[in-house]
C-alpha cells in the first residue's frame, strides 16, 4: 500500500509517466511493456542501440503511433486530455526541407493549438516567434527559406518551434544528429536553461560519450527497459552491457563509466 501511494505521487508530479507501454509492428514487439516515470525538472536521455524502439517509445507516448497496450499519463491524467503540456521535436530528417515555407512560418506552426481558422498572422504572433528564434540565435534568419538552412540551423528552427509551445515537457528525437560541434553546444545550452526554469526534457541520444556531460537522468532501453534513474547511479558498465547486448568493448566502457569524468560539466 505504501509503495502504491508513493508511486502515485510520483506519477501525478511527472509530466510523462508511462506504464506497461507496448508497441508492435507486424506482430513483433518494438517496445515491450516499458515503465518509465519522467522525473519533473530533469534532463533525461533515452539511450539504446539502433532498433531499440527509442523513437517508437516517444511517438507512442505522444499518441502519434498507436500503442498495443499501456497507459500514458501527463501529471497523472490521461494523455488524451493533457497533450498540450507536451512539445515534440521530430528527427530533422523526417521532413522535406524543400517545402515552400520560411523559418518564421515553421516556428509559428508551434502555435497551432492557439490559432483559430479565422485568425491570420498578427504582430504579436510574429513577436512571439521572434523571441523563440532569439533563444536559439536564429532571429536573423526569420525570413529565410527553410531549404537554405544548414543542418544545424534546421535543428535550431525545430527547437524554436518547440519553445514557442511553452510546454512543461519537451521531447526531442536525436537533436544532435548531423549538427556541428558549435550547434550542439548551443542546443545543450538551451536545453539546460529550460531545465533550470523548471521544465522537463526527454531526449533520444546516441553519443554515449556525452551522456554524463549533458544529462542528469537516463533511460537505458532495448525494446524493454534495462534501467532508469540518475546518470551517476544507472549509467554503469553492467547496465550498458545489458543494453547493447555485450557489443561494447571494455575500453569503451571504461572511458564512459569512469567516475573521474564527471564534473567537467557539473550541473
Amino acid at each position: 500500500m505504501m509503495i502504491d501511494a508513493r508511486l502515485d505521487k510520483a506519477v501525478i508530479a511527472s509530466p510523462l509517466a508511462i506504464h506497461g507501454l507496448t508497441v508492435s509492428y507486424d506482430h513483433r514487439p518494438v517496445v515491450h511493456s516499458v515503465d518509465f516515470v519522467t522525473p519533473p525538472g530533469s534532463l533525461t536521455a533515452i539511450v539504446g542501440p539502433n532498433g531499440a524502439g527509442k523513437s517508437t517509445l516517444l511517438k507512442a507516448a505522444l499518441g502519434i503511433t498507436p500503442r498495443l497496450s499501456g497507459d500514458v499519463r501527463v501529471f497523472g491524467r490521461p494523455l488524451e486530455h493533457e497533450a498540450r503540456h507536451l512539445a515534440y521535436v521530430p528527427q530533422r530528417s523526417s521532413v522535406d526541407w524543400d517545402f515552400p515555407a520560411r523559418v518564421i512560418d515553421v516556428v509559428t506552426m508551434g502555435l497551432f493549438r492557439d490559432l483559430h481558422w479565422w485568425q491570420f498572422g498578427t504582430r504579436s504572433l510574429r513577436r512571439r516567434a521572434m523571441e523563440s528564434l532569439g533563444r536559439v540565435g536564429m532571429e536573423a534568419f526569420a525570413d529565410r527559406q527553410i531549404g537554405q538552412l544548414s543542418g544545424g540551423q534546421q535543428q535550431r528552427v525545430f527547437l524554436a518551434r518547440a519553445l514557442i509551445q511553452e510546454a512543461d515537457l519537451t521531447i526531442l528525437d536525436e537533436p544532435f544528429a548531423g549538427v556541428d560541434a558549435a550547434t550542439e553546444a548551443a542546443i545543450v545550452e538551451v536545453l539546460k536553461s529550460l531545465r533550470d526554469e523548471g521544465r522537463t526534457l526527454l531526449c533520444v541520444h546516441h553519443d554515449l560519450a556525452t551522456v554524463r556531460d549533458y544529462f542528469d537522468h537516463v533511460l537505458l532501453l532495448n525494446v524493454r527497459r534495462i534501467a532508469a534513474g540518475p546518470v551517476d547511479e544507472v549509467f554503469s558498465e553492467r547496465h550498458l552491457q545489458a543494453t547493447y547486448g555485450g557489443r561494447l568493448s571494455r575500453v569503451q566502457l571504461a572511458r564512459l563509466t569512469e567516475p573521474a569524468e564527471i564534473g567537467t560539466e557539473a550541473r
Binding site: 502519434i64 508551434g110 518551434r161
Partner: peptide, 23 residues
Amino acid sequence: VVVFRRHLILGSFDPDFAASVRA
C-alpha cells in the same frame, strides 16, 4: 482549404508534429 489551411500545411510538412499537436 480556407478553414483547414493550417491543418493541411502542417500535415503536408510534418505529419508527426501535426499528430503531436492533435491536428
